[in-house]
């Protein structure tokens, strides 16, 4: 659908999450497509780029941007809840997030610029299932749990189980992403975010790495990594994690890290960068993560 075809879409503003689920269920049963619209920072861009069609039926849009159930950030003990319609700007401004999960505001600051941060949401970032999603990289490093809801009931899955392929996921057509829970890293944890983008703002990642580590008695006791734009989906770097977790930090050699990283990434050439460069930078960022961790 192209830009002029925006005029063909219907829009509904369900007043509760329950009615969103009901609408989705009805439409999915009839095989009708439905768009859940939050910040629109991806959806409108896609409309802009796509060629016109001849269709008279446009997808129905459900505006979920202001549903109270999808909004808000709250902490309960060490568990942090982030509603799916939480914007990057809200993540940047939240005091608990800033204190306990500084990775999230650091990542948020690198998404587009303030105009995109004010609209783009963490749930939307996951929904597109793009490997270039910075927010998902951070959620991967935090080993977040994704919460989904449909008329069939809620379900929660580990973010590492969410993706089934390039821009594909386990989310069913009638399901809504409601939010995320994260076990907040402990005091003294190490959190890392580095984005290598096409420029310093308004950039899509060529490679980005989010990382979380806790170290006790020289041993890595918690390790989460999420890498962006180096594989068909967000990369969880399982080989690197296996290499380092519960290992003495000073025995993790750079050469082993390099080999593990290269086993975990499969980057491609595209208009933004080259596969070779991305491989190189992937290794460098993982090395930097551990170098910084060691030097703390």
């Amino acid at each position: 659908m192209s830009l002029p075809e925006l005029s063909l879409h219907g829009l509904e503003r369900p007043d509760s999450l329950g009615s969103v689920c009901e609408r989705l269920a009805e439409r999915a049963a009839r095989g009708e497509k439905t768009v859940l619209l939050a910040g629109g920072t991806d959806w409108f861009v896609e409309r802009h780029v796509a060629p016109a069609t001849d269709g008279s039926e446009a997808e129905l849009v459900l505006d979920v941007s202001r549903l109270p159930e999808l909004r808000g950030i709250s902490a309960s003990g060490d568990t942090l809840w982030i509603g799916a319609a939480t914007t990057y700007l809200e993540l940047r401004r939240h005091p608990v997030v800033a204190a306990r999960v500084p990775l999230l505001p650091a990542m948020s600051k690198d998404v587009g610029a303030v105009q995109i941060q004010a609209r783009g949401t963490l749930g939307g970032n996951l929904a597109t299932a793009s490997p270039a999603a910075d927010g998902v990289g951070a959620l991967a490093a935090l080993d977040a749990t994704v919460h989904l809801l449909s008329v069939r009931g809620p379900r929660s899955i580990a973010i590492s189980d969410y993706f089934t392929g390039y821009k594909r996921s386990v989310r069913a057509a009638d399901e809504v992403i409601t939010g995320f829970t994260v076990q907040m890293p402990g005091e003294g944890s190490f959190q890392y975010w580095r984005k290598v983008g096409t420029r310093l703002a308004q950039a899509i990642s060529k490679v980005a790495l989010a990382g979380v580590a806790e170290v006790s008695d020289g041993q890595v006791t918690r390790l989460g990594l999420g890498m962006v734009s180096v594989a068909p989906t967000t990369a969880f770097l399982p080989t690197v994690r296996a290499l380092a977790l519960r290992r003495p930090l000073d025995r993790i050699a750079d050469s082993a890290l390099d080999a593990a990283t290269q086993a975990d990434v499969s980057p491609i050439d595209d208009v933004r960068s080259t596969g070779d460069y991305r491989r190189h930078v992937s290794g460098a960022l993982v090395r930097e993560f551990f170098r910084t961790l060691r030097s703390r």
Binding site: L37, G40, F44, D63, R66, V114, Q115, A118, R119
Partner: peptide, 12 residues
């Protein structure tokens, strides 16, 4: 908050 008006639906 600053937003890009090209990415916002009027109904929103």
């Amino acid at each position: 908050d600053p937003v890009n008006a090209c990415l916002v639906a009027t109904a929103q």
